Simulated scan of single mutants.
Amino acid sequence: MLKKAFFGVLHALGYYSRYTSVLHHPDKQVFTPGYVLDFNEVERAFLEDSARSFNYAIDYSLGYRQKEQYLIRLQNVEVLGNSGAVVLDGKVVVESVGEVSRLAKSDAFKEVSLLLPKNQSGRYTSVLHLPWADNNNYHWFFDCLPRLYLVLENTQEPIQVIMRRNMALYQLETLAFVLKDYPQAEVVYIGKNEKWQVDEFVLPSFVANAQSGYLPREVVDWLRHKVWQGYGVQQSSRKRRIYISRAKAKTRRVLNEQELLPLLDRYGFEVVRAEELTYQQQVQLFYETEAVIAPHGAGLTNLLFSEQCQVLEFHPANLIKTHYFLLCKALDFRYSAVMGTTGDKLENYTVPMQEVEAWLEGVGI
């Protein structure tokens, strides 16, 4: 009794120390089984370099398994407004937040924050994923919106989609684009300090894996076309070449960028700073782009909206991430990587000019 009362106090303060899995729930519906991607020798070498840089904590060189896609119907759960987590019988449902490691890394599940309970009748779903996707376009487009594909395509009954009011403009816009053709779905807003008790909750699986922009073809095509149509992307004969600068960022800056820019200019590359563009302008720009060069960063998320593109990504030698290689794999884009020097404490590094020039000469653009 004392133990139950103790956990009751913690839960009232928004603190959850225990978790559970519902992968074997009797109401789980699998719509697409898992499968394994094949890689060629060059791709495996890149994935091996990446795995080594992370001390093999994530290793796709031995095979990449696309997870099965499913929905699970849960009864009498709580939805936490501060994190988007779903709670069943006092335990956070791992499948609602992605994976166990994110429970450990995120204060959103363990912060002391009074959550006011509110009973809600009806059928609900949510793809909130905080703080990871609070205002991060990568996590929004790969961890959040793909999950709605599963709900909207496979749920015909009326359903309410729980979101937060303080979403970024591009999130509000693209959410509206995605929901436009699904009259059964309605958005409802939860407060950061609210905890909703709901009768029925439809839990969609995460589609993308950790450090991966790979989405199954039917999902990536659905998402691309929804955003293209929503922003009214215009066909253009103009083919652009862009370099995404992180000069104003705090981390992962290319230290010899000023030396690099004249070389890129000779090959027709223009410098782009995504933060200076509206999201509609970013989508239109990438739709028209035939070649992108960039240091690793969220700006490369917009490759999702390129019609066809070649990509050169820079990485510090000690931190090689696979997100956009796997996105290019999904989109059948030609991808290359250049490894720079070992990154400093802010992951800033220098890139080898000769390797960049060799790529520019060899890709035929």
Rank of each mutant, 00 (worst) to 15 (best):
L263P: 05
L263Y: 13
D265Q: 15
D265F: 13
Y267V: 02
G268N: 10
G268F: 01
G268Q: 03
F269A: 09
F269Q: 06
E270P: 10
E270L: 08
E270R: 14
V271R: 14
V271N: 10
V272T: 05
V272D: 04
V272G: 08
R273C: 11
E275P: 09
E275N: 10
E275G: 08
E275L: 03
E276R: 13
E276Q: 14
L277K: 12
L277T: 08
L277Q: 12
T278E: 00
T278W: 00
T278K: 02
Y279H: 15
Y279C: 14
Y279G: 13
Q280M: 14
Q280F: 09
Q281P: 09
Q281Y: 12
Q282C: 06
V283G: 02
V283K: 00
L285V: 10
L285G: 07
L285R: 04
F286R: 06
E288T: 12
E288N: 06
T289W: 01
T289D: 02
A291T: 10
A291H: 08
I293D: 01
A294W: 02
A294C: 07
P295C: 01
H296T: 11
A298K: 02
G299S: 07
L300T: 12
L300M: 11
T301G: 00
N302D: 00
N302Q: 02
L303M: 06
L304G: 01
F305A: 02
S306H: 00
S306D: 05
S306K: 01
E307K: 15
Q308K: 15
Q308C: 10
Q308M: 10
C309K: 00
Q310K: 15
Q310W: 07
V311H: 03
V311D: 06
V311Q: 04
L312Q: 04
